[in-house]
């Protein structure tokens, strides 16, 4: 016969502090990673609207014309998708929950739209100077809105104007600096000099100074065309001449500066 087996537990808890908190007199301490609510650092926001499009709960509204960024606090599910998607890193997650209330909380932030000279006017369009472009496709890879289409073989660079949020992520990333917001010259767009390119490119070659190289593999990771093979153990650094577009994305990333296009 074994009855009242819980006596031990009960007896012990007589001498322990309560496991519960005297809420709300004593506030609970939140962890650093607690997903409480979304913060907007409005100085950096460019109203691109990617957060609104990524939100699974449709809790964010972005109005470019009125210059407002709105979040429906009670609709937000704190998944963090917008924080991860923001190209300007102007969203953050803090660990304080929205206070429970009888009315739904809607927070609207006014965003001052900057007339940035480098980015052109607010109604600018993303253009590519096709004389410079090597069709590496890096822009399409970083585009958070999937608005760009690049085909190397056909020498096509296209932007889906509906989808483009003009966030400028591609402009920052372009190794040839051929992308701009509303600055492209008319003639450059009209005549892509595709025929001249291969001849000029033919002499160029990506080289690595193997004495300096530490085979870290950063170049291969950042190659938009997957043209590089790096093996640390075997000490191999190889470039696929066919695939390489000589964009120079690897040069920027190389910590030893042992890469060169010549």
């Amino acid at each position: 016969m074994k009855t009242f087996r819980i006596a031990k537990v009960l007896f012990k808890s007589l001498f322990k502090k309560p496991a519960t908190l005297m809420y709300p007199v004593v506030q609970r301490e939140w962890q650093e990673r607690t997903r409480g609510s979304i913060d907007l650092y409005s100085e950096a926001c460019i109203l691109c609207g990617i957060c609104a499009r990524r939100c699974p709960a449709d809790a964010i509204e972005v109005d470019r014309k009125a210059g407002t960024w709105t979040i429906h606090r009670m609709q937000c599910i704190q998944c963090g998708e917008c924080v991860a998607a923001c190209p300007k890193k102007c969203l953050g997650m803090n660990n304080q929950y929205t206070e429970p209330q009888a009315e739904k909380v809607v927070d609207t932030y006014e965003i001052e739209q900057k007339k940035d000279e480098t980015k052109g006017p607010a109604n600018a369009e993303l253009t590519c100077n096709k004389e410079e472009c090597v069709f590496c496709g890096l822009c399409a890879k970083v585009c958070p809105a999937d608005a760009l289409k690049v085909d190397r073989k056909e020498k096509i660079w296209e932007v889906d104007k509906e989808a483009c949020a003009k966030c400028g992520a591609c402009v920052d990333k372009c190794p040839k600096k051929c992308l701009s917001m509303g600055e492209a010259k008319a003639e450059a767009e009209a005549a892509p000099k595709a025929e001249e390119k291969p001849a000029a490119e033919g002499e160029e070659k990506l080289n690595c100074n193997l004495d300096e190289c530490i085979y870290c593999g950063l170049c291969a990771k950042n190659c938009p065309c997957d043209a590089l093979t790096v093996d640390r153990k075997e000490k191999v650094w190889e470039v696929d001449e066919e695939a390489c577009v000589k964009c120079g994305a690897c040069l920027e990333k190389c910590p030893k500066e042992c890469l060169a296009i010549s």
């Binding site: 496991a19 990673r33 997903r35 704190q78 660990n95």
Partner: peptide, 19 residues
């Protein structure tokens, strides 16, 4: 069980929905 939930909150940021 609360101890386990605290671990989950510390590592993932949520008590029951981890995202």
């Amino acid at each position: 069980r609360e101890t386990v939930l605290d671990i989950l909150e510390k590592t993932t940021g949520g008590r029951v929905i981890f995202s």
